[in-house]
Design a binder for these strands. Structure first.
Length: 1083
RNA sequence: GCUCGGAUGGUGGAACUGGUAGACACGCAGGACUUAAAAUCCUGUUCGCCCUAAAGCGAGUGCGGGUUCGAUUCCCGCUCCGAGUACCA
């Protein structure tokens, strides 16, 4: 019988499944090898021909490694939480679990059809409670940890608590929020439980904090930075806006430096490492403070008017006294004030609140300048002015402020209630007019007012001729002088109107506005004007820059446009009237204490000076932000947290997994809560509110490779993966997947891996030793050309591609599955759509040739090629080999089925080697000839080399060469063919299993056999046909023994008749002889 | 703008540390078998020149230069294409 691939493939796929041929054990004498594919999200569309590319490569590699004597872990699973199933649920009401299950079954069927050697007993699904139990468990571990910079690793939060108990906050070096409190051990012990929890939250590796987030209204959820592309959501392409919200975040920034360093130790594609480096965005520089006090008054600045600067609400006459008082008050704050402050700070009410702020001749306890509301707490420290309360209120009312009062007892007993009342009041009050007797923040009790900037070029500090703040910067309101109010407000409005996209696109227009205020240069003491401009980003560094127009092109453009001075700071700078010169060469000029120094010297001197002045320090800045972890969606892992008195607490570990509750609809509640808010009676211990957000898509995929290490038996144990299994498998040796996960999955996975290592649960610092990005398979669309008549309407006539220029036509996508080698199947086309049933054609050469274009593979373009169809026609072995034959694995390429016939022919030819002309199986036991051995050992070596360097396409060519040679030799020797079967087995597992048993081996024993041993003796030649070139141009071939030395070879060459023609009577200057390679005669 | 890739026949691609450029396959052309088609097999196929063929000659790996006996490969400069990223101070 001819090659019956359908029968063979189905039979062997069933055999592998029934016999669990590829089930792997965790204990083995063999060395381990872990081959991992990025597990798929099971979408409704099923697999197209591009998806299996990486899986085929990893399967070939796994099968090869098994033959090479390794214990290979090669698992597969599903990343089964995600948006599409939920969107479908919203539209149809069908539970996402049902959709997901159906999709997984479809995926499994398609994967099985390709004959992969996965160990399915270890399958994982991220949406399975037995799996997400451990995702939730890791979340809890993160919540219970902080990052100790001294040991440079994550540690239990208990360790931090012990430190607080013994030494207070002193000497703690941690990655934390910016606003951590300073306290002694006693103060810590005296704190209430709520206060302690609130403080610890600033250290935990997963934490709840008000953050600016990417909010996608269409999806109704927040998104992480890597899920937003150019201001639109990656999934669905909906607009994304910035919004402040209370959100769960992961302190990934704690690992920024370790993630950067780790990149040097792993074998990943360079572009991908580069993307991670950019994403982490480390820049080494300095923070510099430009102080705002004393600020030159209008008079001092030589400007008209004696009006007080707009940012001061205090009576200037007694400002100095008030300043001292307010500082003192902040230090000696009462317990009630502290408690209330914790509820008001960080805009928890939705508005910015300041404490102990001077107004007129008074100091208010708390004030919201935007709404003009003053909150006073009576009793305690400032009882001495209690009698004057009414008078005070009246005076403040006159200044345009409203006052509400609470008693100490009220605040202490029910701080949440009090803050609720404040919130209510704030919501009812109208906004005060911006800048109107508004005041400058004094840094919430942290000292003098200043503008802090981040710079990577401290050395240029003397060239600073102005400061620029982002329009959103919190000091802008306070800094604006009354005369500039309108201009600044206009500018802010104008920037706000510009969308994020416009702002990015329009980088050429220089715009900005002057606040009217000046800051003091920290070293020279010169006044420096403060501007705002949208080229400064609020989100990076401190949202403020020192502008050095001589060294930075953006600053130069700004200075030029607004007529600000440009001061050269280096004798090497040139053409400063044309553009900025950021050179680090030369010696400094106009630069005070660093005049005459070089770049390196100046940087050191200046940082030392700034530190001495308390005006700055060296600082490493990262672009990487903490990862927002909550999603306001249904189909994800519930966060194992409940709330008590407004503070988050972990549920008990025994209560894991916290199951996803049922809901009536998959939409937000009427009050805007996430879908989980709809769940009925879903309360911790029956009464406490659960967190209603779910985890993001990347949670489940950030540790899944460890779950595969747990065998089905292991999974009965109460652990994410047993320690001995982790000790054995360690890490992933080879990871294959797409580069689109560069800054998402691959970054988060490294983060969680490092965290788990810090806690001692895993053994390797990096999870994926070697990574390969398979190229994207693009679609290849075919077109037919419909002729358009004079009135511009489509006719029923279609013209072949080569003749279309003679007509007016419109191109129409046509299903690529009815086009072969660009020739349209006319009958199938007529059946393609009813409107084409009566189509007429203008042919060329009797054929209708279609047009071609490379586009993304998608249903709407009719260019999706389904692997099932190809397997039906050619078989899985052919498809596997053809996908490899297309080109280098890492290269992106359009799918083109045109060459598949060649691979199919190859497999039939291979089958023929084992059969006679009547297709009877017939092999001979005769001793093979030298030529036959040579053909075999060439392929043994070649495939080994190719697989080791992941060059699968070249192996396929070599197989063809080998089979062509053996066919020519009419070889049917068992000794040759049996080994050839083993060499081909990783690529074409079905046909080789079949032939392996026909050769008399036990069924299924092929993958347990071993790769044939290469014997170089069969390749030894004693002669070589040397290309002989004259002056580098090849002229002839000469067969010469390989044993000869150069003088002997030269003699033979020079004696040659044909060569003399080229010598033209001259004698050669030199003869180059490379043994086994070439002879070159130089005249 | 910056960073990283890439450019080889009609097409996909090969040539691994500099050593016969175009392996292998597709497509195309011609032929065999066949009533015919499909399938299969055989021959040719980088381009140009010489009427044709053989033989031969010349050019040739995006462009321009360089190093070398010899460059698709190494170096310098440029063009184009792709990917990532972006007022990151």
């Amino acid at each position: 019988m001819d090659y019956q691939f359908r029968d063979i493939e189905q039979r062997w796929q069933k055999f592998w499944a029934d016999n669990q041929t590829f089930k792997v054990e965790n204990n083995s004498e063999k060395p381990k090898y872990y081959v991992l594919d990025m597990f798929p999200y099971p979408s409704g569309a099923g697999l197209h021909v591009g998806h299996p590319l990486g899986y085929i490569a990893s399967d070939i590699f796994s099968r090869y490694k098994r033959l090479k004597g390794f214990n290979v872990l090669h698992p597969m699973g599903y990343d089964s939480f995600g948006l599409p199933a939920e969107q479908y649920a919203i539209q149809t009401g069908q539970h996402p679990a049902i959709t997901t299950e159906a999709n997984i079954n479809r995926y499994r069927e398609q994967l099985d059809n390709l004959g992969f050697s996965f160990d399915w007993s270890r399958e994982v699904r991220t949406s399975d409670p037995s799996y997400y139990k451990w995702t939730q468990w890791i979340f809890m571990m993160l919540f219970n940890s902080w990052y100790n910079l001294e040991s440079d690793k994550a540690e239990s939060i208990e360790v931090l608590v012990k430190k607080f108990e013994s030494n207070g906050s002193e000497g703690i070096k941690a990655v934390s929020d910016d606003d951590v409190a300073v306290f002694t051990a006693d103060e810590w012990k005296n704190k209430s439980d709520a206060e302690k929890q609130n403080e610890l939250l600033k250290y935990r590796l997963t934490y709840l904090r008000e953050s600016t987030v990417n909010w996608c209204p269409a999806l109704g959820t927040v998104l992480a930075n890597d899920e937003v592309k150019d201001g639109y959501s990656e999934r669905g392409g909906h607009p994304v806006e910035q919004k402040k919200m209370m959100q769960w975040s992961m302190r990934i920034t704690a690992y920024a430096d370790r993630m950067l360093q780790g990149l040097d130790s792993i074998d990943w594609p360079e572009p991908l490492k580069e993307m991670q480096r950019n994403w982490i965005g480390k820049s080494v520089g300095a923070l510099v403070k430009f102080s705002l006090t004393p600020t030159p008054s209008p008079k001092e600045r030589g400007e008209p008017g004696g009006e007080q600067p707009g940012y001061m609400t205090a009576d200037p006459a007694i400002w100095d006294i008030l300043k001292e008082h307010s500082r003192q008050h902040r230090k000696d704050s009462t317990q009630a004030e502290d408690i209330l402050w914790q509820h008001l700070r960080n805009s928890k009410t939705g508005y910015k609140i300041r404490r102990q702020h001077a107004i007129g001749t008074y100091i208010a306890d708390f004030i919201c300048l935007k709404k003009g509301l003053i909150i006073e707490v009576d009793g305690g420290y400032h009882t001495e002015i209690k009698d004057q309360d009414e008078l005070r209120s009246e005076a403040l009312n006159n200044l345009g402020f409203e006052v509400i009062r609470f008693s100490n007892e009220q605040v202490v007993s029910d701080p949440t209630g009090v803050s609720g009342k404040i919130k209510e009041k704030l919501n009812t009050l109208p906004d005060r007019i911006l800048g109107d007797s508004d005041s400058l923040s004094l840094g919430e009790g942290r000292g003098e007012a200043y503008i802090e900037v981040f710079t990577t070029r401290v050395d240029t500090i003397y060239g600073t001729t102005f400061l620029v703040l982002a329009p959103e910067h919190e000091l802008v309101e306070g800094l604006t002088t009354p005369d500039r109010k309108e201009e600044i407000q206009n500018y802010i409005d104008q920037t706000r109107k510009k969308s994020e996209l416009d702002r990015m696109a329009d980088t050429k227009t220089v715009s900005g506005a002057f606040t009217g205020s000046y800051a003091k240069h920290p070293i020279s003491g010169e006044p420096v004007p403060v501007w705002i401009a949208d080229y400064v980003l609020a989100g990076y560094g401190t949202g403020a820059v020192m502008a050095v127009p001589s060294g930075d092109q953006r600053d130069w453009l700004f200075a030029t446009k607004f007529g600000l001075p440009i001061v050269a700071i280096s004798d090497a700078q040139v053409n400063l009237d044309q553009e900025a010169d950021p050179t680090k060469e030369g010696k400094y000029i106009n630069s005070g204490i660093v005049n005459g120094l070089t770049y390196k010297e100046a940087t050191g001197v200046l940082i030392a000076k700034l530190e001495e002045l308390g005006a700055g320090k060296a600082k490493v800045n990262y672009r990487l932000r903490d990862a927002i972890f909550g999603r306001q969606r249904y189909w994800g892992e519930p966060v194992p947290v409940y709330f008590k008195d407004g503070l988050p607490y972990l549920i008990s570990i025994e209560d894991l997994p916290l199951l996803l509750p049922e809901v009536d609809k998959y939409l937000p509640t009427e009050s805007g809560e996430p879908p989980l808010g709809r769940a009925e009676n879903w309360k911790y211990k029956g009464e406490l509110e659960y967190e209603l957000s779910t985890m993001p898509g990347w949670a489940g995929s950030s540790w899944y490779w460890y779950r595969y290490m747990a065998s089905p038996e292991d999974r009965k144990q109460d652990v994410f993966a047993p320690a001995d299994a982790i000790a054995y498998w360690k890490d992933v040796d080879l990871y294959i997947g797409g580069s689109e996960h560069a800054t998402g999955h691959l970054l988060y996975s490294r983060f969680w891996n490092k965290f788990l290592k810090d806690l001692g649960y895993v053994v390797e610092e990096e999870p994926f030793k070697k990574l390969i990005n398979q190229g994207m398979i693009q679609g290849r669309s075919n077109f037919v050309y419909r002729i358009i008549d004079e009135s511009g309407r489509g006719t029923n006539k279609f013209v072949s591609h080569g003749l279309k220029s003679q007509y007016t036509t419109s191109a129409i996508h046509v299903d690529v599955n009815i086009v072969y080698n660009e020739i349209l199947d006319l009958e199938k086309f007529k059946a393609f759509r009813p409107e084409f049933a009566e189509a007429e054609f203008i042919l060329e050469g009797g054929k209708y040739i279609c047009g071609v274009e490379v586009e993304k593979m998608s249903k709407s373009k009719f260019n999706v090629v389904n692997p099932d169809d190809l397997i039906e026609r050619y078989g899985a072995d052919t498809l596997r080999m053809y996908e490899m034959f297309l080109g280098p694995l890492e290269q992106s390429k359009p799918w083109n089925t045109n060459g598949i016939e060649g691979v199919f022919k190859f497999l039939r030819k291979f089958w023929k080697l084992f059969h006679d002309d009547e297709f009877n199986f017939r092999v001979s036991d005769e001793e093979p000839s030298k030529a036959e051995y040579k053909a075999l050992h060439k392929i043994i070596r070649k495939v080994e080399e190719d697989i080791e360097r992941f060059s699968f396409n070249t192996s396929v060519s070599s197989f063809m060469i080998c089979v062509n040679e053996l066919t020519d030799l009419k070889c049917n020797k068992k000794q040759i063919l049996e080994q050839l079967v083993q060499v081909l087995a990783p690529y074409a597992p079905h046909i080789t299993e079949e032939l392996w048993t026909l050769l008399g081996n036990p069924a299924g024993s092929l993958s347990a056999s071993s790769y044939p041993k290469f014997n170089p003796e069969y390749l030894v030649e004693n002669e070589f046909s040397y290309p002989v070139s004259v002056n580098g141009k090849t002229r002839m071939n000469l067969s010469i023994s390989l044993t000869l030395t150069q003088p002997e070879v030269e003699e033979i060459v020079l004696a040659n008749e044909d060569l003399r023609k080229y010598l033209e009577g001259k004698s050669p200057k030199k003869i180059i002889f490379v043994k086994g390679k070439i002879i070159n005669v130089v005249i």
